[in-house]
Design a protein around this nucleic acid. Structure first.
Lengths: 254, 254
DNA sequence: ATTAAAATGATAGAATCTAACACACAAAGT
DNA sequence: ACTTTGTGTGTTAGATTCTATCATTTTAAT
């Protein structure tokens, strides 16, 4: 994408809508045909939808319920990899169980593809709850302060709620992992909640791609011993120390 | 909306996209101009976006997987009217206050357009919380069982949470109203929660269009005396009895 | 029955879109 | 150095679509 196309994309994001006549004034040095081609390019790449006389931003349409924030930008990175990991994890979900789904874009991928017949889903993430409400039999939303980066609810209210909830399987995510510090995140309250979930759940499945290995964040909520299964995409980064845990680490083909 | 327009709307929902030439084949008895007008109508009501040569469904983009749920079908009805009501209600929101936003599509319209500088928003609806998390300074999500029709959380967990929350202004919705039964909804837990909210809030603003007047549902959560302002679109349906309440009823132009 | 309002049809002209070809320029290969 | 290839761009002509307007029909209300 060249500078002109990037500018048009930004105009679209800001204004939600742009007319060819406006573009002609902004870019008088290029021909109308070129601007048309730019709009076609943006349409083919999913940034815009061409209308008669211009184009609108795809973000404009997303407003009804969609996610369109910092979170969403990260969520679309490596979406194929995340889907592969989520698909593997979905195979561990059994009918009629109580399933906790953590906040995080990989877990959100899983929420999109689970059927979970008769399952009760519990989640702290508002986007996950919204998605699950379409298909799932029963959905519990943990309450609390919403973190706009993770879309997760945490804090004393969430802690209080989980006291009364039994969890068969917890599908968790983390922002970093190292053998010394374990699984880490950057938010104190979310760390506290995750720690409590890991303790309560009968079975803990971690979804985390290899890019987060050997990165430590501020708060540790679990060590490798605390989880039962870890679904990831690559083992190459792992030091030989991990080899003893190989049986709990599931590697998905990429 | 007439039969033909309804059919086109369904075609759009199914196919995500429709060309005028296709419509001409489906409706050979009417002129092309009429079909163009139908598409314009659907566009003005938020169901479609016209393109060169046809139109696309607004659902096409925002729900990459899965079709629209029951909630969204209702949410798109009368969206202009709901926006008008929501805009009026937004003018009552003051900086830095604690604002409760109820579940409901009209209130969701308000969530889309509030700035609410420095406000803390509390809501039971997961879609509203998700939307607010983009823009608002602070968002609290009430926890509990998610109702897939209203996308609202309610139950003992939500009741427990609001005990510790102070509310300056509560923006409420209801499914029905009559002078005898007051404001009503069909779900026991949601009624219980709404009732508690109305009691706690210093100021209660009701958003409800006139189509719900003189319809009673199972559970009453407030009477006309309990609310401070009611924003609606029409007074014609009201019996003369209501006239004494005229000062608290705000009518928006349609 | 009369009137008003809404929906529809027909037409012309304006605006937009597409396709096709030509040109300029840079990168890569011979 | 020369050619080749590909990409980006400009120009034009013609096809398609859109809008505005007014005439006509249908529907609803009094």
């Amino acid at each position: 994408m060249n500078d002109r196309q990037t500018t048009i994309k930004k105009m679209l994001e800001a204004a939600k809508e742009v007319h060819l006549q406006q573009l002609r004034q902004v870019f008088p040095q290029v021909s109308e045909m070129t601007l048309r081609r730019d709009l076609s390019y943006l349409e083919n790449n999913g940034y815009a939808i061409r209308t008669h006389g211009g184009a609108i931003s795809t973000n404009k349409i997303n407003i009804p319920d969609g996610e369109e924030n910092e979170y969403e930008k990260r969520a679309n990175d490596n979406i194929l990899l995340k889907t592969a990991i989520a698909t593997k994890a979905a195979s561990y979900i059994e009918k009629g169980r109580s399933i906790y789904l953590d906040a995080g874009s990989t877990v959100m991928c899983l929420a999109r593809l689970v059927e979970g017949e008769g399952c009760t889903f519990i989640t702290s993430a508002v986007n996950t709850a919204l998605k699950l409400s379409n298909t799932a039999h029963s959905v519990m939303q943990l309450g609390g302060q919403v973190n706009k980066n993770t879309l997760s609810c945490s804090g004393p209210d969430a802690m209080e709620m989980i006291k009364h909830i039994n969890i068969d399987i917890a599908i968790m995510s983390a922002s970093g992992f190292s053998i010394d510090r374990g699984f880490t995140v950057s938010n104190r309250y979310e760390s506290q909640l995750k720690q409590a979930i890991v303790e309560k759940a009968k079975k803990v499945i971690m979804l985390m791609d290899s890019s987060k290995i050997d990165k430590d964040l501020t708060f540790t909520f679990a060590m490798l011993d605390d989880i039962d299964i870890w679904v990831t995409d690559e083992l190459d980064k792992l030091s030989p120390l991990y080899k003893s845990y190989i049986s709990k680490i599931q590697v998905v083909p990429t």
